[in-house]
């Protein structure tokens, strides 16, 4: 039995072990991987950049803890961008285990007052140096990202299709109160917000079929400008909606999240941190695919020649 035959019959557990070792080494060594920005991610960034301070957007955090690893980084990056632009965020979740995810991310992203000031100043300094664009706000940051004023969390309600349709009529239909039982009328951010007409866009960060519901009911029925943040597994299935114009942007898995982190200059982002491991994992899998196929074809050819001789 030669090398290629052995490789093609290798116990899968050796593959797992090898993959685990290279991923851990890549994760610990933390080398830099250049992140190329794709147009589908850039279009979301550009759309949020084009918003005015005080504009309101809806973000649906429709994922469970099992997708936290993939979707939290992009949620953080989008929220960071909204904070920097002064865009107000109405958070909601249509995933049954998503309330904890959404609350965790909104609370963490809101951070402390001092942290926010530092981050805003760093960002504004950087952007002023780079672009000298008058759209960027004054260097002295005005206020903290405050609950009820700059962002809110409506909570969870079951049956996503009906909730999306209901919010198209009136947010108060399904969410008379927010997650903390505060009537929406008492939240400053919800003043003048009745339905999708009063928000600039919606972003669905999702690990399930709520993306379809947002496409059909949010965009299809009410015409809300929609972007999707998806897990890697779902990514390839939703590109056709980008081409058809049903969504204006798409962030797919860690690669998409890393691109958004790069765009907002979020150096401590988890997705960018994990890109070296992604690169070596993909290379390892490509290597095993090549070796496995070589082994298969060579042993197949040998069998054919042996049969021909017989």
């Amino acid at each position: 039995m030669d090398f290629f035959e052995k490789i093609s019959q290798l116990d899968r557990r050796w593959v797992y072990l090898f993959l685990a070792v290279v991923v851990v080494i890549a994760f610990l060594t933390k080398f830099d991987v250049p992140v190329t920005i794709t147009s589908e991610v850039k279009s979301i960034y550009d759309r949020i950049e084009s918003l005015n301070e005080g504009d309101k957007i809806l973000i649906a955090f429709d994922y469970d803890p099992n997708a936290l690893a993939e979707l939290h980084p992009m949620s953080f990056a989008i929220l960071e961008h909204c904070q920097r632009r002064g865009v107000k965020v109405i958070g909601v979740t249509l995933s049954q285990y998503g309330a904890g995810m959404a609350e965790n991310i909104l609370r963490t992203a809101s951070g402390t007052y001092a942290e926010k000031i530092d981050r805003f100043r760093a960002y504004n300094d950087q952007m002023y140096d780079k672009t000298n664009d008058s759209r960027y706000r004054d260097k002295s940051y005005k206020k903290d990202w405050e609950y009820g004023l700059d962002y809110c969390f409506l909570g969870y309600k079951p049956y996503p299709a009906l909730v999306i349709l209901g919010m198209g009529q009136n947010f108060r239909l399904y969410f008379p109160q927010d997650y903390y039982n505060t009537p929406l009328g008492e939240l400053d951010i919800m003043q003048g917000v009745r339905n999708y007409d009063d928000i600039k866009l919606a972003i669905d960060v999702t690990a399930g079929n709520t993306a379809d519901f947002w496409l059909i009911y949010g965009n299809g029925r009410y015409g809300v400008p929609l972007a999707l943040g998806l897990t890697g597994v779902m990514g390839a299935d939703y590109y056709q909606y980008l081409q058809s114009g049903q969504i204006f942007g798409l962030i797919g898995g860690w690669k998409g999240a890393a691109e958004y982190e790069e765009l907002v200059g979020r150096d401590e982002g988890k997705a960018k941190e994990g890109m070296p491991a992604q690169v070596v994992a993909h290379l390892t899998i490509i290597l095993f695919i090549v070796l496995g196929n070589l082994g298969y074809f060579l042993s197949d050819r040998r069998k054919q020649s042996t049969a021909g001789q017989a």
């Binding site: 685990a20 690893a69 993939e70 890697g232 597994v233 779902m234 992604q278 994992a281 993909h282």
Partner: peptide, 11 residues
């Protein structure tokens, strides 16, 4: 995309 997703979870 699926490989990327699984590696993300592992990392």
């Amino acid at each position: 995309f699926t490989v990327m997703a699984r590696i993300s979870l592992f990392v």
